[in-house]
Design a protein around this nucleic acid. Structure first.
Length: 911
DNA sequence: TCTCTGCGGAGAGGA
């Protein structure tokens, strides 16, 4: 049976004499989990499922024997523990448990450690840490290795060798170009490695008629807490490809460990594996090993239980280290620093961050405030990472229905067909019969499965089309009936690297400014850029003249996008190379659109490049998108030649963008970015300009932590003189603007012109306010609805809103000029069923950045204003500043009056 | 269950 629970106290480790001699044991006080994660999980396990211990609350004792005491030493109270194949023992009337010869002990099993992490860790825990902290830079051996692996996968799927090489090299044109490689030379290099594999494969095919292969299988183990992607699986056993030479008789130890990880993963998927194969591509007859006579690129080895258990213990070390937040030192393993490629990096990082390491330290530690900063943000980012891990755990902890309710999965799809594609991949089609929604979008990477993403047949796939019929592409033909969001650590990885680069690679002057040690400086600029708006002109002047940074505070409707575009034009005219960035693709494209207008006669169109994925970029910006595939020289020239590059901050952290350098980085919607997120963009430039509004929505983070305040806000507070607030708005009727101006901008926000101040619905073609009921004729009105008292929806408000929409339509307002805003997604869908399709209904968060003629706000609160969503007043600011000509607030006045800010809002709305 | 966008998935290798 499996025993699972929470460590409930101190672990006692000691040696005892047994009939077999001296043995180590650890006694772990454990509070068993109430139940198996869910009924399904327990029922599908071969051994009869997780133990449900009689009294689910009481603490019991689990004894871990011999080598498992190593994992026991890692345990801290509160950690989760899983022991498989445990035996039950009665001791002094109490039921206790102990490991058996078949047992595995898993620390924090829901923390899914990747196979790469384990492979790095076994070499040196420090290597694992450095890889996480500073990323793997763009270098040729790595890119070549990736190419050889891709071609290997292609060969397994039956693709022609030459065709595969050409196609794969072409796909990586941009990266190869940045490395200064030519397509022919790379193709030759890849061919040399791939030919050995092809020969070996053919030999195998002749020997074994039923050689069953599967390429690049994604595997997740809920028992061992490991995930990874096997290069290939042959007759149920892992095959691991290595680009390079190994003339020794045995595979390298870390390669064995890697293969053993896959063996464990395959075991959980019904395999029973004790053979692993390593393919060293450069081994050939020419390199015949004198001693062994070995010429085959393939080395087979037997994986004993000892190795598999060792791998789980390694994995436990990582899980425990990540849970505690400690930094590895390198003493944890037998690594020899003098042979390590990362020795210098290791010494520099430990020197600068004042960490203990086996390699020793180089250089002086960073100042205390920087060390404190690193520590704070490292913890915050790692907390975000744990949230991603929790997302993984939900793949097996939640039922399909719960996942679907969470919008994390599309379930009960009807499989339609599979069609082989030329490259050996597959196109799969399924019908979404229920027409259900999810957060999945076209272009997303998903787990496509036959209904069970973890234990069933599942593949990593890409969504090509998402209508009633769903089209996805994948390496293997899964009979897909379910799609799950695939949780990715990419964002957290990049945040960590961005912070590392800012502190360890950033120049000193920049850090002086970021840490409040030096005030930002500005050069004199004599030019006038904008002649009809002093603040906008001042903002451009500051942006252009900034020697360190400038901050532009742009409240709703104040022409922030235009100001950015004008500033960038001025920079381009001065011959500078500019990076334009923002958190979302939408914000980047909006800013780029305005910029293109400004740049029309200033530079050639092909000197403006948009970097990002095809699915993320708006269709009309597609002509500017930098295609990654192509001839290396051509691709790299296109990028290097660009004077303006636009990309999301996340893309700024990619390996390609990290190679780029700019004079200025301009970051829009900067108040929605975390500090490390902002760093990803500004790391690439000498100077930076942040544009945003910290009175609107803050960054979205999963965990409560230091990431919630933006760098923009912090710098605006620290250096008010480096900032300019745009104060004239071009959007709202004056009556609409009053509340937000007083409440959020000290009354400083005002209409840009008398026309703006006076705008109302009568200005619109075919609209007459007289046709509206009297209570809606004023630009701001309040409709009191008692509400249905449910928590995240309100059908009465929804019904009333449908009526209001009809009234405005009757008065001549176009449906497309009306927007409805609600705090909760549940209420958004409730309202959507009541109003016509062409009325935009969305959450506050998604309305930020846009505006409408008429806005109706549903507060969805009865009785009281409980819940975090109402506590953040910035959300009301966003909601109330979307309309141009009319705003209607719909809600329960009694509930709203319980909060002073909402009460003032009520007074204002009632006129 | 409060809001939710990004990502070239993980792993690729150098002696």
């Amino acid at each position: 049976m499996h025993v699972r629970g929470t460590v409930a106290g101190e672990v006692d480790v000691r040696s005892v004499s047994t009939s077999y001699g001296e043995s180590d044991l650890a006694e772990v006080p454990l509070r068993p989990a109430d139940d198996a994660p869910n009924g399904d999980a327990a029922a599908t396990r071969g051994d009869g499922g997780t133990a449900t211990i009689a009294d689910g609350r009481e603490t019991t004792t689990v004894t871990l024997w011999n080598k498992w005491t190593e994992s026991a030493e890692l345990l801290e109270p509160g950690m989760e523990l899983l022991v498989t194949n445990a035996k039950e023992e009665e001791y002094q009337g109490e039921t206790q448990y102990a490991t058996t010869g078949e047992s595995y002990v898993v620390v924090e099993p829901s923390f899914l450690v990747s196979v790469t992490s384990i492979r790095n860790w076994v070499e040196c825990p420090r290597l694992y840490y450095l890889n996480k902290l500073s990323g793997v830079p763009l270098n040729y051996p790595v890119v070549k290795g990736t190419l050889v692996h891709e071609v290997f996968g292609d060969l397994l799927r039956g693709r022609d060798l030459e065709e595969a090489i050409d196609a794969r090299v072409e796909e990586r044109g941009l990266q190869l170009g940045l490395l200064g490689e030519t397509a022919d030379a790379v193709a030759e290099d890849v061919r040399e490695n791939a030919t050995a594999i092809e020969g070996w494969l053919q030999q195998g095919r002749l020997d074994e008629a039923e050689d069953v292969w599967r390429s690049e299988q994604l595997l997740i183990s809920e028992t061992f807490g490991i995930r990874g992607r096997a290069d290939a699986v042959r007759r149920g056993a892992p095959v691991e490809l290595k680009t390079g030479k190994n003339l020794k008789k045995e595979p390298r130890f870390k390669d064995k460990v890697q293969a053993a990880c896959y063996a464990l993963l395959l075991e959980e998927h019904g395999g029973d594996v004790d053979i692993g194969t390593l393919l060293y591509t450069k081994n050939s007859v020419l390199d015949r090993n004198e001693e062994t006579g070995d010429l085959d690129p393939a080395k087979e080895f037997t994986m004993g239980e000892g190795l598999l258990k060792y791998v789980v213990r390694l994995r436990n070390e990582i899980a425990a280290k990540e849970t505690s937040g400690d930094i590895p030192t390198g003493y944890e393993a037998d690594a020899k620093c003098e042979y390590c490629f990362e020795q210098d990096t290791c010494m520099v990082v430990s020197g600068r961050l004042d960490q203990e390491s086996k390699a020793g330290q180089i250089g002086q530690p960073l100042p205390d405030e920087e060390l404190e900063y690193f520590d704070r943000f490292y913890r915050a980012i790692e907390e975000e990472r744990r949230e991603v891990h929790r997302e993984y755990a939900k793949l097996w902890e939640q039922t399909a229905e719960e996942r679907a309710d969470d919008d994390r999965a599309l379930i009960d799809l009807e499989f339609v067909e599979k069609r082989p594609l030329d490259e050996g991949r597959w196109e799969l089609r399924a019908r979404n019969t229920g027409g259900a929604n999810s957060k999945l979008r076209e272009g997303d990477l998903v787990l496509a499965s036959d209904g069970d993403p973890v234990r069933g047949d599942s593949e990593l796939a890409r969504i090509e089309r998402l209508d009633d019929e769903i089209v996805i592409t994948a390496d293997e033909p899964v009979e897909v009936t379910r799609l799950d969001v695939y949780p990715s650590e990419l964002t957290t990885d990049r945040l960590l690297v961005a912070m590392h680069d800012a502190l360890l690679k950033g120049n000193e002057r920049r850090k002086d400014v970021l840490f409040g040690r030096a005030d930002p400086e500005f050069a004199e600029i004599g030019e006038e850029f904008i002649d009809n708006n002093d603040r906008q002109n001042e903002a451009v002047t500051k942006a252009v003249g900034a020697e360190d940074c400038a901050l532009i505070h742009g409240p709703p409707g104040t022409g922030k996008t235009y100001t950015i575009a004008r500033a960038i034009r001025a920079m381009v005219e001065r011959g500078e190379r500019v990076l334009l960035s923002a958190f979302t693709n939408r914000a980047v494209d909006n800013a780029l659109e305005a910029l293109l207008e400004q740049l029309e006669d200033v530079i050639d169109e092909d000197r403006v490049v948009r970097v990002g994925s095809e699915s993320g970029i708006r269709d009309d910006m597609e002509p500017y998108r930098l295609e990654r595939a192509g001839d290396p020289d051509d691709r790299v020239e296109k990028l290097q030649n660009a004077q303006v590059v636009a990309a999301t901050t996340s893309t700024c952290g990619s390996r390609v963008m990290k190679e780029q350098a700019f004079d200025v980085a301009l970051v829009d919607e900067a108040a929605q970015l975390t500090e490390p997120g902002t760093c990803a963009a500004i790391n690439l430039a000498e100077r930076f300009v942040l544009v945003g509004d910290h009175e609107q929505l803050p960054p979205v983070v999963r965990a409560e932590n230091d990431l919630t305040e933006s760098l923009f806000e912090r710098l605006v507070d620290r250096y008010p003189e480096a900032g300019v607030m745009l104060d004239r708005q071009y959007r709202m009727n004056q009556r609409i603007q009053v509340f937000a101006s007083n409440e959020f901008y000290d009354g400083r926000l005002r209409p840009a012109t008398p026309e703006v101040a006076a705008r109302n619905l009568d200005d619109l073609d075919g609209v007459s306010r007289d046709a509206l009921p009297e209570n809606l004729r004023d630009p701001v009105s309040f409709v009191d609805v008692e509400g249905d008292r449910s928590q995240y929806t309100d059908s009465e408000e929804a019904a009333r809103i449908a009526e209001l929409v009809e009234r405005y339509e009757a008065a001549g307002v176009e449906r497309t000029d009306i927007g409805v805003i609600a705090p909760f997604r549940a209420q958004v869908s409730e309202i959507s069923t009541h109003v016509p399709d062409d009325v935009a209904v969305d959450t506050v968060d998604r309305f930020q950045g846009s505006s409408q003629e008429v806005i109706i706000v549903s507060f969805t609160a009865t009785g009281s204003l409980e819940g975090p969503i109402f506590e953040d007043y910035r959300r009301i600011n966003v909601a109330l500043t979307r309309p141009k000509r009319a705003l209607v607030l719909v809600g329960d006045s009694q509930a709203l009056a319980t909060d002073p800010v909402y009460e003032r809002m009520l007074e204002w709305a009632r006129g």
